[in-house]
Amino acid sequence: MIDHDKEFEAKLAAMRPTRPSADLVKRIGRAVEAGECDADVAPPIYGFAAWRAVAGLAAMLTLAAMVWLLARPGTPVQIDTPPVHVIAGSNPTTDIRLTDPTLPTAGNYLRAMRESPEAVDALLQKHAGLLMPPTRDLNLSDLMKDTSS
């Protein structure tokens, strides 16, 4: 830097900026020492990681609240009964309920298995005669005839 610039710089540096009022020091001091600062100094939340942690915590709290609401004593637990499936027939009067014990349903067979092997046999016999249409015996010549016609 040129000498006269340095001289001028020294002249400027010798000047003292107007001092702030004493009230300013007090105001900052109050903010710091009266605890206002400490209360506000609570570490701010920075960055994505912190927000993710907050979101995770919120999700956990929500889940915990739901579990508590469902499991607390005295809360009637509602169990939805399965709907009754209805097979619609051509005529409404012929609608058949799957709970009919005479039908070959999985429920009826399970029930029979729990009862006894004989009950299962009886059910099989009953349904074989009831529902399965008689079928002819298959042989190769019949099949060949069918495909040629």
Binding site: R16, P17, T18, R19, P20, S21, D23, V25, A31, C37
Partner: peptide, 27 residues
Amino acid sequence: GPALVLFARQWSASFADAEDVVQEAFV
């Protein structure tokens, strides 16, 4: 402090405003 107030006074409307700005910076 004095230099900061002087610095703030370039933009502030008044000395009091400049002091407010300096207070804000310290806090």
